[in-house]
């Protein structure tokens, strides 16, 4: 019951979706299952939200280390949830787009989520730069290639890179750093990405088969009941 039913569900759903590509009458079923997936994924979001609330209430209740910040998380969560689900301040009312300009939901996205998200990612620029300064050493041919490619791409996207080789004549324009950067992105980089993508494609296909055939069962967890 605990393992046989999920294994059967997975095998049936996976097989139906593969077969639906070859059988036009089943095509709608494939589309419906994709929509089912999206709907269940929303419930998974709710599960994630519920879990977040549970963890932070627990932390607050037991007054664990940094419990005060759990209040911030819970306040942010419930504030966003209420204004988002009730569409507070939305000029178009209940039927309008939740992200309508002027709604509290969209304003919170613009002035809270957006600055936080982009600054978090921007912060990585400092860490990547500091890590690469320590790690990048042209010790051998491979490391030199990596270093050179990164350097040309970085330089090619700055005004300094444009200025540096602006004197190169048009008949030698591949030697201009911005053009060289574009060439690296479109040729050797594309080739490498393609080799990796083909490998990933084969990996995903074999993993899908292992799941559908019931060979891969790690998603069921450790309980052997």
């Amino acid at each position: 019951m605990r393992r046989a039913i999920p294994l059967t569900i997975l095998a049936v759903v996976g097989t139906v979706l593969i077969v639906s590509v070859f059988l036009p009458p089943l095509e709608n079923l494939g589309e419906d299952f994709t929509l089912f997936f999206d709907i269940i994924a929303v419930f998974a979001f709710f599960l994630g939200g519920g879990n977040l609330v549970r963890i932070h209430f627990n932390k607050l209740w037991r007054k664990r280390k940094d419990w005060g910040f759990s209040i911030v998380t819970l306040f942010g969560f419930f504030f966003m949830l209420v204004i988002g689900l009730l569409k507070i301040g939305n000029p178009g009312g209940i039927g309008a787009d939740p992200t309508a300009e002027g709604s509290w939901f969209q304003e919170t996205f613009n002035y809270v989520i957006n600055p936080l998200q982009s600054t978090m990612y921007a912060l990585l620029a400092f860490f990547v730069a500091s890590a690469s300064y320590r790690a990048f050493r042209a010790k051998n041919r491979e490391a030199t290639l990596l270093l050179l490619a990164a350097f040309i791409i970085l330089l090619g996207r700055t005004p300094f890179g444009v200025m540096l080789t602006a004197w190169v004549p048009e008949s030698w324009s591949i030697a201009q750093i911005p053009n060289l950067a574009v060439w690296i992105m479109n040729s050797p980089n594309l080739a490498g990405q393609r080799a990796i993508i083909i490998g990933i494609g084969l990996g995903v296909v074999s993993m899908s088969l292992r799941l559908i055939l019931g060979i891969e069962r790690s998603y069921l967890g450790e309980d052997r009941g």
Partner: peptide
Amino acid sequence: HLFVGVSAAFWMCMGFWTTI
């Protein structure tokens, strides 16, 4: 902590309105 709370609720609301 604010980012965690607000973005969790944001995606829940988006899922509710756009999918459900």
